[in-house]
Computed example of a mutant assay.
Amino acid sequence: MTSVLPVRLPDPAAREATVVARTPAPRTRRSLAADLRALGVRDGDVLLVHTALSALGWVAGREQAVILALLDAVGPTGTIVVPTQTGTNSDPSEWQAPSVPVEWWDVIRAEAPGYDPDRTPTDGMGWLPESLRTWPGAVRSSHPQTSFAALGARAASLLARHDLDCRFGDRSPLGALAAAGARVLLLGAGYDACTAFHLGEARSAGAPRERLACAVLDADGERRWTDYVDQVADERDFAALGAAWEAAGEVTAGEVGSARATIFELDAAARFAESWIPAHRPGWTTT
């Protein structure tokens, strides 16, 4: 019999101590809002935000303080948007990290709850998106796998449409954000997390398509398993794409707390990705 070694999880206290040790002074709602303003965040901004919370340093109030700082920076006419994806609402035959036994697949397909914007938690997105989606007044889009949540003056209109067969294209909140002149804000997060590049991917020539499946709730609240076809979404080369995008000179960089932060126009980044991806992915056409 092959022995299975126990998985050693990080010690939360040790992780917290590491963050404290590299933070010269507590980060606060006020200090983070000031840093965001210095970076270039303006009143009325619509921001698609990706955050690595620990990169900011030790924050008094954690994700709550960061969300409040973001709202302070954009003001009452601004809007904050975050991805609130639920990737495990998918066909178990595709799972790899980890996989599950084949004999479980039919049970999962038959029994997994349908996506409910109000109740379904985010999956692997971090503390801040999960906190924002439950914030009073937050709006969440309808896609059962790749939803977004928003707070602010334009939240409802920006997230109103999210077609099942358009995870990241122009019939998704990303398309609405691009049309609204939104900007992307990366707070300690890398370009591999930049969902704006998926909009360019969806628009690009030669984008292959794939069949997907998930559990949904119909108009009567009945749960059902459904499948659909959409363009491939693949972020494995987004770090290289992001480096090329930053080298193009349309990115403003600075520090927010202890984190390196970047801010840039969402539609411009998507248009850059739209041409870069076909030229750098084998098998994609460039015409």
Rank of each mutant, 00 (worst) to 15 (best):
A261V: 04
G44M: 13
S275C: 06
R42I: 07
A17G: 08
R281N: 08
V46C: 13
P26Y: 01
W105K: 07
A253C: 10
H162G: 00
L266E: 00
P76T: 13
V20K: 07
Q145A: 13
G114C: 13
P26L: 09
A243V: 03
A279W: 05
L48R: 09
L158G: 01
S142D: 15
G78D: 14
R62V: 06
G44Q: 12
A269I: 01
A14T: 00
L53M: 15
A156T: 04
L70V: 12
L151G: 05
A33R: 03
L187R: 08
V41D: 14
P12A: 12
T88F: 11
L177F: 02
A65C: 03
L48Y: 10
E16D: 15
F168R: 04
D170M: 12
A243T: 14
V49N: 07
S275W: 07
E246V: 04
G200A: 14
L5H: 08
A21V: 11
A60E: 15
W245Q: 06
E255H: 06
I108D: 02
D170F: 05
V184D: 02
P208Y: 05
G137M: 11
L132N: 01
T84R: 07
L174F: 03
I263S: 09
A65S: 01
R203E: 15
D163L: 03
D237M: 12
R109Q: 12
I108N: 05
G249F: 11
A178C: 02
V4I: 15
H198V: 14
A34F: 06
D237L: 15
R203G: 14
R223F: 10
L48V: 13
Q96P: 00
R15W: 08
P282C: 09
A179L: 02
L159G: 02
P173Y: 11
D72T: 02
L56E: 08
P92L: 06
R260N: 09
I277C: 12
G254C: 00
L151A: 07
R236Y: 04
R133A: 13
S93L: 14
R224M: 10
D234A: 02
T262C: 14
L39T: 12
D123Y: 10
H280N: 15
A179V: 01
L128P: 05
E63D: 11
A205C: 01
A160L: 05
D11G: 00
G137T: 14
P278R: 06
T146I: 03
R140M: 12
T88K: 08
M1N: 07
E63P: 01
T287A: 14
G114S: 13
R30N: 13
D91K: 04
P129E: 14
A259P: 03
E222I: 06
R119V: 04
P121E: 08
A52K: 02
G169A: 10
V4W: 05
T287C: 07
A112K: 09
A180H: 04
A196V: 02
F272H: 00
L159C: 12
T2M: 11
D234E: 14
V100R: 09
V100P: 06
R171L: 06
E235G: 14
P92I: 05
L47R: 09
A179N: 08
V46N: 07
D230Q: 15
Y115T: 12
D45V: 13
G169L: 05
W245D: 03
G242D: 00
S147N: 09
R29F: 08
